[in-house]
């Protein structure tokens, strides 16, 4: 029964998301694209979290992807869609090289190092003036799809669907068992034949490719990169807050969290500039204190309680 409901709800959401641009103006549509962007980042952050590793480096790979897309178009004259792919590949390659060193760290040490690495990327991009345009960044001569907002929305939507599919595949396959074992107890996992390092590196690369491609799409949509905007800490902190609010260790949580927080914060921004950041802070504190499983976890608990009362 609940399976049918879930399928119907998901189909309805998909139809709504596809039809959405035709019934609304430019402004809601740009909000929707921004929500999708954060949603992808939130899901990808959660995918790595399932190994127990907390990354503060999302903005780093997002920014790398943004710069790679814009620079490969400017210097190599590649078609925009290809540059987005290149954004993902370069972010993934850097994650692979970095991961070999960084993925030996755990907990707070890993978190801090990923934060520092993102900052180093930003500083490098600021200082390679001749190549990256320095603090002013670079502008693209034209936007992807000639700036057609329908198409950019669908591109980001497609990226979100792809990310959700990858996340679900990981949750339903043996990868899920490996990651859950690693998160629970690495020594037990190793003693059961799980090659921990292999899984950590693979997940780190996959999530970084996703974040890099998302940065690439974003840069191609708005037609520019700057160190401040492309590596903005928002791209790290907002997805994290969204995933925590919605519920971690699954696809649904980050998706729900991104929808809620993304939409609420856009409206708050109108009334209190920067107010949305205060709201984020408050939400994170409340969630961590009172509902560590997030909205999705809370809903599951209520459902279970309801089932027991019947």
């Amino acid at each position: 029964m609940s399976k049918y409901i879930k399928t119907i709800v998901m189909a309805a959401v998909a139809v709504l998301a596809v039809a959405f641009p035709f019934y609304t103006g430019a402004y809601p549509q740009s909000i929707a694209q921004s929500v999708l962007t954060y949603m992808i980042l939130a899901v990808s952050w959660d995918m790595l979290l399932r190994t127990g590793q907390i990354s503060f480096g999302i903005a780093g790979f997002f920014g790398i992807g943004s710069y790679a897309a814009v620079l490969s178009m400017l210097y190599l004259n590649l078609p925009p869609m290809l540059t987005i792919l290149i954004g993902g590949i370069i972010a993934g390659a850097i994650a692979g090289l970095l991961g070999i060193a960084v993925l030996r760290l755990r907990g707070m040490y890993f978190a801090i190092v990923t934060l520092a690495v993102a900052e180093i990327f930003r500083i490098i991009m600021t200082n390679l003036k001749g190549f990256t345009g320095g603090p002013e960044g670079e502008l693209l001569p034209q936007l992807i799809f000639q700036g057609n907002p329908y198409l950019t929305y669908y591109l980001m939507f497609g990226m979100a669907v792809l990310t959700i599919i990858i996340s679900e595949i990981f949750l339903r396959s043996r990868v899920h068992y490996a990651l859950t074992a690693i998160r629970n107890d690495e020594i037990v996992a190793r003693s059961s034949g799980v090659n921990i390092f292999k899984y950590l590196v693979i997940i780190f690369i996959v999530t970084s490719v996703i974040q890099g491609m998302t940065g690439g799409i974003n840069a191609q949509t708005y037609g520019f990169v700057t160190p401040e905007s492309s590596f903005s800490l928002d791209y790290t902190l907002l997805p994290l807050a969204m995933a925590l609010l919605g519920g971690i260790y699954g696809t649904m949580g980050p998706v729900v969290g991104a929808l809620l927080l993304g939409i609420v914060s856009e409206y708050l921004k109108l009334y209190i500039p920067y107010g949305h950041l205060v709201i984020y802070g408050i939400i994170v504190v409340i969630v961590i204190l009172y509902m560590p499983q997030g909205i999705v976890g809370l809903a599951a608990r209520i459902r279970k309680a309801g089932a027991r009362n019947e």
């Binding site: 043996r174 490996a178 859950t180 074992a181 020594i187 037990v188 003693s191 059961s192």
Partner: peptide
């Protein structure tokens, strides 16, 4: 193979899933 003096059953998994891990990865 070995057990652990301080046992650590893997949480968020059922007993059966705990046992499946060795079959899958070892």
């Amino acid at each position: 193979a070995r057990t652990f003096q301080l046992i650590h059953p893997l949480e968020n998994l059922t007993a059966l899933q705990n046992v499946m891990i060795g079959f899958m990865f070892a």
